[in-house]
Design a protein around this nucleic acid. Structure first.
Lengths: 343, 343
DNA sequence: TTTATAGCCGAAAACGTTTTCGAAACGACC
DNA sequence: GGTCGTTTCGAAAACGTTTTCGGCTATAAA
């Protein structure tokens, strides 16, 4: 059973394909009588224009590609949610791919999207993306591109990010304002820009409040897991039993810290104040509830899509457009874990 | 700057489009000399076949559509992960849509995918899907369809599910074997089949072990949230202070129960044993760690895709294929929360 | 009666690829 | 020289739509 085509409609009505097409698209130069006949028959036969043909003819598919490191990830799934909803509003569909934090895979996914001839690409880079050849290829091919969250500064494109340094500054300052002076930082891996920026924000906050930075209070994750949180909690307790506050790179790590402290009778927030990062769902349901930094994931996704759409439409109309970098503001979400009691 | 086409290659080489196409696809009837010339030029000019044209010609796009209720959801994102990985292995891309648990939106998304002429559709229904007209339309259009997790029994298609009744039976029996006799069940909403099946599994386990079913021990969620878990925990404590075990429809609800009990000094598992459902990540990091039922999300996704692929290929080859229903086995994940101490 | 003007319609090209089918060229063999 | 087979190539149709452009008819104006 084949799909109905314009040609079939035309033949059964005894008119030309052209007229059928025009009737369906509301052109003015088709009489009301034939228009209605066409519409009626099209309805009856469940006609829908063949998307393949339309794509070929119009050289566009109303489809974008999205590449993220991991889909099973609270933040990225929220961003994706924002992208999908906003895309739907504007009649766009999204092909979703994950790079699994591997550059080779990321490059492969980019190639796939280029070959598919998507109308545009949204990408958040994998952690070890040192090579940008594939991104350059996107630009060479003149495909609209917007980077979000984890970006490459070397690639000229619109970017939607959060200000990691500022956010980390506020997180640390929050602990300071709660009365902490000796504050440890469990930071992210060495390379990713985000981890570096947050670490710098931490230092800046200490500096502003006259606390000397002590590198021994900084612990570096390699995998940013729950288990690492537990391990570093133990380590901190032996290295610095008098620690007053901890700023963890991520809620997951912070939850690991809580878990270890809970088991070992070290009280959060009575003995030590704690703040995480991302405002992951779990931070509301753990005991004690975890203070955190809210990253507006859906907003980031929606904004990234809108920037991409702007670029797509500008190019189609042969209009110029500006590459911008949008920095979303984060906010401290104050919960129980940071209500430091002092000594 | 336009993309290179077969025609351009042909013209600069002074040969026909046909020969260029054949050279690129490794046909035998093109001489080694011309083949190499074509390959070389294609490489230089970064030629990639125009996907729009290929789709039109072949009447397929190597793209499938996926509709899930929510993307920001641990289980569904895992299923999606399984789908995407398996699809990638077979050279397929996926367009992802969410129905947001609304039938109207679901119907709209189905229409979009039909119009896009995807090669097949994977769908998990929204909760209030009582109307199946849109699914029937997929079948009428002869589009390969596989349902997973939340399915409609009325629609003939391959299905990949878990055996909710069996899983709930095992969860309840697990509590019984730990020594619980008075066991409450916080069940899901009234309509969805999954909630009904789990409730029946609960009853069956009681029956098998000679415990009379008491409807007053069953509490019905409407939104299946953390807050509902807390509320019902409170309610259970006043209604049945001597409760020994609780089987919650979902880990999230179970975590709500833990949260309330933790705050009010009612000890899990000393006073009451608890088991959830889904084995989502949080169950490992909460204190006490939550026993649960593991649902193999990625496996479900991978399997669903493979079934779809089978159907796609069978149709292309005009071979018959069978509709099957695959029931994945779940397993009890025993953690701290179910280690009941008795009285 | 001619001319201008709407109103309606359709031929045809274009999008870029794939595949069928036949043809040309060439050598080998009888 | 004719026949046959092999190798290499290309014309053309097909996939289904969109859009331009010109043409036809009938009516109104001159």
């Amino acid at each position: 059973m084949k799909d109905t085509t314009l040609k079939e409609l035309a033949e059964t009505l005894g008119i030309s394909v052209t007229t059928v097409s025009k009737a369906l698209k509301g052109y003015a130069d088709v009489s009301p009588k034939t228009r209605e006949a066409v519409l009626k028959l099209a309805e009856e036969l469940h006609f829908t224009p063949n998307a393949f043909a339309v794509n070929l003819r119009k050289q566009e598919s109303k489809t974008i590609g999205v590449i993220i490191p991991e889909i099973v990830h609270h933040f990225f799934s929220k961003v994706l949610n924002g992208i999908l909803d906003e895309a739907a509003k504007h009649g766009y569909l999204a092909i979703v791919l994950q790079s699994g934090e591997s550059v080779e895979l990321e490059r492969k996914q980019v190639d796939l999207l280029i070959n598919k001839r998507v109308d545009g690409i949204l990408i958040s880079l994998s952690n070890d993306s040192n090579d940008e050849a594939h991104l350059k290829e996107i630009i060479r091919r003149n495909i609209p591109l917007v980077q979000f969250d984890k970006i490459s500064k070397l690639i000229p494109s619109t970017k939607v990010v959060i200000n990691d340094r500022q956010a980390a500054f506020e997180a640390t300052e929050h602990l300071i304002l709660k009365g902490c002076r000796k504050i440890a930082h469990i930071r992210g891996p060495v390379n990713p820009q985000g981890a570096i920026d947050r670490w710098m924000g931490y230092k800046l906050a200490l500096e502003k409040h006259g606390i000397t930075y002590n590198p021994k209070l900084v612990y570096t994750c390699t995998h940013v897991t729950f288990e690492e949180g537990r391990e570093f909690a133990k380590q901190i307790l032996t290295d610095h039993p008098d620690v007053e506050g901890i700023f963890a790179i991520t809620d997951l790590v912070a939850v690991g810290v809580i878990s270890y402290f809970n088991e070992n009778g070290f009280k959060v927030p009575d003995n030590v104040a704690l703040i995480g990062f991302s405002n992951w769902f779990m931070s509301q349901v753990i005991t004690p509830q975890l203070s955190s930094i809210d990253q507006p994931g859906e907003e980031m996704g929606a904004l990234a899509f809108n920037c991409l759409l702007e670029e797509i439409e500008a190019r189609k109309a042969n209009k110029p457009y500006d590459l911008k970098t949008i920095s979303l503001t984060t906010s401290v979400v104050e919960r129980q874990s940071s209500q430091f009691k002092g000594k």
